[in-house]
Every structure is written in structure tokens, then in C-alpha cells.
Design a protein around this nucleic acid. Structure first.
Lengths: 154, 154
DNA sequence: CTTAATCCTACCGAAGTGGTAGGATTTGTC
DNA sequence: GACAAATCCTACCACTTCGGTAGGATTAAG
């Protein structure tokens, strides 16, 4: 059930771009240095974001990347889907009834469908802007109180 | 973000045991045949459930397995944790602050914590009994209507 | 003592993860 | 036009996990 580094780094890249864009294009080398990540590996990840239409790029000197939209117009679900492939916890969810002929009688399918829905609902409700502004109440829900105290523990 | 076959088969085994127990112990061979799964592979999975205290087993002839508790006293979260290891979508959630020294300033951590919470809340709210009885309203929430029609599509 | 069952350890091919390497291409600047 | 700095593209690779298989030791009922 882990989100791979592809998805996590993709999000990191977008957050970095949102914070450090402003004027022109931001180079991959700058992002990699700021985030302490391998530039070569980030290259393959940012390529997915670019092909998915989430970025605008400029080649050549002074080139780089920038966000194609405003931070509030990216939701986390689409970012992770682009890099992870799918967020469905089991294959049979992706297109129900197609892959598994036992779908009609499968007693566990509603559970996986419900889990998928819960994950999708949550991730599509959070935007890149929520992350930038640290909207803990939205991300952590009613449990925000216990999370505020966490910072003091260490 | 996929649940592996370990977790899925574990759930299948528990559902099968709940449905086909009644009197004594149920042999692994019977479960494997009913569920059309490899007995040898199921062996390693059921071993985890057994060591985790979810089953009672009897060796020797007429031996097998049976549930250690009532179906309503198993929640799906604990079943998956036992077989999958953890349900956390990223490592830094498992024991916050310990693994990643950047936790205090990590802007994406609240997102992963929120996702973890949403998954955990959902899966721990569903019991084995809900699956047995096909409690679609609980598993699928308010979307149950659209899911009822799904059966007619194919 | 045979048979049917769990238990235990080891192995194994295939796929996915997390990168690295090297070069081709494009673009701004001198 | 040359050079430098950047994206783009393809291939490779070590490691781990996934999804099993194989073979035998142990236990218990008849």
C-alpha cells in the first residue's frame, strides 16, 4: 500500500516549483539541489508530469520548467495517478466486471471498492495549494488538535 | 498502492472459514479447492494469521483451522496489517519524527498522515461480519445506489 | 502404523523500485 | 558560429518484493 518515490517526488517537485517559480523557468538542477534528490532520477519523474500536461518546459539555456496552472487547480489524486499509474488498491477495481468474471459474486469486492472510494475522495479533495499553505485542518480533519502538539514532542 | 495477494487471500481465507466452519476444523486443502487458490501458497498466508492469533489450528488427521473469535470481532485493518506489514502509505508515518529528521518542516507530511488516517479509519470500521453479510451500505457509504445497478451491466 | 493434516525451511522466476549512464537535441549568449 | 546550459530520450542495472513451488518434519486420529 505504499506510495512509491515517483509519486512522492512528483509532489515534491510541484511544491518546489510553486514556491520557487515567480518569474521564469526553474531548472531541474536547482530543484534537485534544493530538495537533495538525484537530478537524473527526478528527470524521469518530471518527464511524466510534463507529458501529462502539468508543466510547461523550455529547452536550452535558461530553460527549465514551470507550473501549467495555478496551485489550486492541481488535486493530489491526479498527480499520483499520473506517476503511480493507478491508486486502486486491487486490480478488479480499475474497470469492474472486465478483469474478473467472479465480480458479481465476489464478497470482498465491495470492501475494495469502498476503500478505493475513500482514498480517491480524500486525495482529490486536497490541492497543491493546500499543501503550500499548510492547510492542516483540511488534510488532517478533526484530528488537527493532536497533530499540533506533535511538533513540540521533538 | 496495491494490496498484495497476501492481504487479499488472507481475507478470502477468513471469509471462507467463517462460512464453512460450523462444527470442527476446516482443512487448508478444502479452502484452497473452494477458493481456487494454490494450497502451498495459502499455507504461508494462513501461517501468518495463525501466528497472529486470529485462528486456532489442530494438527494431524481431521485437523485444520477455525476462527479464534466471532466474525464481528475481526476488523479488516488488523487483518491487513498482519499480512501486509503496515498500511501506511509512506514510511515516515510509521513512527513520526524517528525516521525522517525533516518531519518538522516537511510540507507533504500532513497529506500522508491524513491519507493514512482516512485509510485506517475506513478499514478498522469494517468487520469480517460486514463482508459476510454483504453490508454494502457500510462498505460503500452513500454511493450504494450506483453500485446496486452495477450488477445489471454485465 | 498408516494416513491426513499442520508446520517449517529453502528456493526461484518475474516484476517492480530506485536509480545511473550517455548521448542527442534545443536555445540563449558571446 | 561556437559554446554552454538546459531539456529530452534510450538503455541499463542492482536490489527487493511478489507470487508462488518443493520437500520434508511433525502431529494426531483411526
Amino acid at each position: 500500500m505504499m506510495v512509491s518515490t515517483k509519486g512522492r517526488y512528483a509532489l515534491t517537485v510541484l511544491v518546489d516549483l510553486a514556491r520557487n517559480s515567480g518569474e521564469g523557468y526553474v531548472s531541474l538542477a536547482d530543484i534537485a539541489e534544493r530538495e537533495h534528490l538525484s537530478m537524473k532520477y527526478l528527470e524521469s519523474i518530471i518527464s511524466m508530469l510534463n507529458k501529462g500536461g502539468m508543466l510547461e518546459s523550455l529547452r536550452g539555456k535558461n530553460g527549465g520548467y514551470r507550473l501549467a496552472r495555478e496551485p489550486k487547480d492541481y488535486n493530489i489524486s491526479e498527480i499520483l495517478v499520473l506517476t503511480e499509474g493507478t491508486l486502486a488498491p486491487v486490480n478488479c477495481i480499475i474497470s469492474p466486471g472486465v478483469q474478473c468474471e467472479k465480480a458479481a459474486t465476489c464478497s470482498t469486492l465491495p470492501l475494495w471498492a469502498g476503500l478505493d472510494k475513500v482514498i480517491e475522495n480524500y486525495l482529490s479533495s486536497i490541492t497543491l495549494e493546500d499543501i503550500l499553505t499548510g492547510n492542516r485542518r483540511k488534510m488532517l480533519g478533526d484530528y488537527c488538535d493532536s497533530c499540533d502538539t506533535q511538533q513540540e514532542e521533538n
